[in-house]
């Protein structure tokens, strides 16, 4: 089942295309890593796909109404905004907003989704603490939990692991893998190519607004592409512990 289909999606800032004719589909059960150097257009691509930016071309999400879209795709922005000192549980419960009719109070199903999301992000102990009192990494996990609680077939996440300790970085991506096993999919932008290589079923490499490569991690992280796009040389091997990727040096 196709969860996201982009066709020639283009975003221009003035004359200059920031996302240039992006075309790809995401089926159920995928963890798709969106990689590329700074300014490649990763965030813009995801926001345009969600209809948060004006664009040309097609995105399957734009065909939906706002309410339907909110039940289909969750969005985890890079800026980690928590404006008020609300309890962690209350904040995660906001993920249930698309499932509630106007004026409807959250029910048992909503509470269950919140409990599950809190447990998945290792936050059950923080449930009643004001979210603004937590550390930056803890706040990031609260926001991931909020997206999980939305229980959408598709999650788009922009740098969700930045600032997390290694254990919680891995845990976050393992949660995405769990979702994929249940037939859901995640499109996640990452700067840590090692994490991307190990946990994503597929990588999309962006460079200057274009999609340079789209495929299995081993294919996308080829020495040529790494050199042309990132300007680096790296070690990549596949052993009993899975894919191991380590950038080694900058090539001038």
């Amino acid at each position: 089942m196709t969860l996201l289909a982009l066709n020639d999606l283009t975003v221009r800032r003035g004359e200059c295309p920031v996302v240039d004719h992006a075309t790809f589909r995401i089926e159920g059960g995928e963890v798709v890593g969106l990689i590329g150097p700074n300014g490649a257009g990763k965030t813009t691509l995801m926001r345009a796909a969600l209809g948060l930016l004006p664009s040309t071309g097609q995105s399957s999400l734009l065909a939906m109404g706002p309410a339907e879209r909110a039940r289909h795709a969750a969005w985890l922005p890079q800026s980690r905004e928590i404006a008020w000192p609300v309890a962690v549980r209350t904040l995660v419960l906001l993920g249930r907003v698309p499932h509630l009719a106007g004026g409807q109070r959250p029910g048992a199903a909503d509470e269950a989704a919140v409990d599950e999301a809190l447990a998945a992000m290792d936050l059950s102990a923080f449930a009643d603490r004001p979210a603004t009192e937590l550390s930056g990494g803890e706040q990031a996990r609260v926001l991931i939990a909020r997206a999980l609680a939305q229980e959408t077939p598709l999650i788009l996440a922009d740098e969700p692991t930045a600032g997390l300790d290694p254990g919680h970085q891995i845990a976050a991506l393992e949660r995405f893998t769990d979702l994929a096993r249940r037939g859901q999919s995640v499109l996640v932008s990452l700067h840590d190519l090692g994490l991307a290589a190990r946990h994503c079923t597929r990588l999309i490499l962006m460079h200057r607004g274009r999609i340079e490569a789209d495929g299995r991690p081993r294919e996308v992280l080829s020495p040529d592409l790494l050199r042309d796009v990132f300007g680096i040389r790296a070690h990549l091997s596949e052993g009993p512990d899975g894919v191991v990727f380590q950038p080694l040096e900058v090539i001038g």
């Binding site: 948060l52 795709a73 969005w75 922005p77 905004e81 008020w84 609300v86 906001l94 907003v97 698309p98």
Partner: peptide, 14 residues
């Protein structure tokens, strides 16, 4: 309430 998470997140919540 949804705006607590910022404009983008609120918009994505419908």
């Amino acid at each position: 309430d949804a705006l607590t998470l910022g404009e983008d997140a609120a918009a994505s919540l419908g």
